[in-house]
Design a protein around this nucleic acid. Structure first.
Lengths: 297, 297
DNA sequence: AGCTCTTATGAATCATTGA
DNA sequence: GTCAATGATTCATAAGAGC
């Protein structure tokens, strides 16, 4: 697949282009911008982004680490940025936040719970929580906990009428159908009502000839480790699944905390435009290389 | 296995026995008590329970349904009960809460998040969140969401030094791969997003040759269906896993919202004492039958 | 008894239609 | 208008039947 030319600009360069950008009323598509997303996004018009998928710097007690925001300060740090996300997102767009609280002093920290509550106060709808279950994490053991093998993928929306292309993420039907659907009896042919009066009923005959079914809200995706240069905590398959589900071809995908650029790679791979923002020049450089590298596709 | 004699008492009968119980300083072991857990537990001494595992009535908008607590009132309904849980639990004991918020008006309701925050204010430590991924959840697809196939199992503790028997829940590494390969069907092959087995590269080498490995904090357990008389939403395997992990033989397991008695069955099956409480006489009767039935073991 | 094959069943949500 | 009924939608597990 041809990846075209990728732009990568510093914040200064971006602000120089920005006058033009406003005059032409065009977005800096397929561009990597080096800067703080809050500052960068303030120059964007309202309602211009179809999907925001991001895995922000995780809360970290060690203040020196790149991107390490102290858990106690995380919500206050996040909210001014999510305010810009809310403004630039189209009404029918979606914001997917991949996040997981870490253990602080033997307890799960509560900043993610508090963040969800605050985001709702900010105007977001908390539509769904998907679970990213990491299939291939190696065994681990601590005195009082096991390997943490899952992360939250929180879905937020501006309105209840958001875009969703469910067929794009359908999966092959399970092996059960081969045997079950061979010979059908009378109850299989009619709708069999649930005894719990839930309104649920099943009609086995509906499944005959079906090859694809809808997935659930648990995503089984392997972590991407041992990759070439970068240590991408965010495997391309994760943003890719949400890009397929929530955007159409040529839609605009934003990752305000781009890191090594998995979202950008996933967007290009699926013929969507991307805008990636990161404060660290080395990550911007790495992301540009990855998006332009044919080995990613 | 011999199940012994199971007691089942009404609240009145329980209060008659209760004088004796206090005098003898013994707990009503292997007893099913019909009443509200808050009222019942107030008669219990402090620090007498090793493990509380429960799946309380879920929040429900339909007020008529049994156990249906309105989501907006759920936290206020729960807190006086969890206050008693905190009092009766031993310092080294654990409280496992299986719960999941439902969709209200297109959004995930926030009462579970609020409950976690309030439980911490009440004095609980929020140690961990396990995910129960339901392998065989029934179908579902709506205009803007997929099937909800997971629930939270929240671990709370009184102190950081809680009992944990990690070896009791180890999984055979060979067995895992053997059964996995045996059942390998089209679904497994095509749904597996992992393109490379690169994750099994470095540190996995430490585990090669070992017979048993520790599990993660994602539990893959099927819902219990097609069972005889009862419809246990809570499969025995779920409380059983936590009973093995957090208690030793002859420890005392409490389920304050017993329902059809899966926790009681799991406790007896693993030679732990149980105390089950439920407000509904029909559930107390059903639970007694299940615990005494040899077909459950 | 022991094996395979068949069949029943389970914590739901939303738009639409009918009363 | 409000409220209740209806349709859509998987797969693992265990009971039961057949051999």
């Amino acid at each position: 697949m041809s990846t075209g030319s990728i732009k990568s600009v510093t914040l200064n360069e971006f602000f120089q282009q920005h006058t033009t950008f406003n005059q032409l009323n065009t977005l800096p598509l397929d561009t990597i911008i080096c800067g703080d997303c809050e500052e960068v996004l303030r120059t964007f018009p309202d309602n211009c982004i179809d999907l925001i998928v991001t895995s922000p710097p995780y809360a970290d007690q060690r203040k020196k680490t790149y991107g390490g925001i102290h858990p106690d300060l995380y919500v206050d740090w996040f909210l001014p940025r999510s305010k810009e996300f809310l403004r630039v997102l189209k009404p029918e767009g979606t914001f997917v936040l991949n996040i997981k609280e870490r253990v602080v002093d033997g307890e799960r920290h509560t900043f993610v719970l508090e963040l969800i509550l605050e985001l709702r106060k900010q105007g977001w709808l908390w539509t769904e929580e998907f679970i990213w279950s990491k299939k291939n994490c190696y065994p681990g053991k601590w005195p009082n906990r096991f390997r943490d093998s899952w992360e939250r993928c929180l879905q937020f929306n501006k309105t209840k009428k958001f875009k969703m292309f469910q067929k794009a993420v359908m999966v092959p039907i399970g092996g059960w159908s081969n045997t079950r659907l061979k010979n059908l009896n009378q109850t299989d042919l009619t709708r069999d009502e649930s005894k719990t009066k839930s309104g649920f009923g099943k009609k086995i005959a509906n499944w005959v000839g079906r090859e694809m079914v809808y997935p659930t809200n648990v995503l089984n995706i392997a972590t991407e480790c041992g990759h070439k240069n970068h240590s991408a905590a965010f495997p391309v398959g994760l943003p890719e699944w949400f890009i397929k589900l929530f955007t159409a071809k040529d839609d605009v995908v934003l990752d305000p905390f781009m890191g090594s650029g998995s979202t950008a790679v996933a967007a290009k791979k699926n013929t969507r435009y991307f805008i990636g923002i990161d404060t660290q020049p080395e990550y911007c450089k790495l992301a540009k290389e990855r998006v332009e590298s044919p080995t990613e596709y």
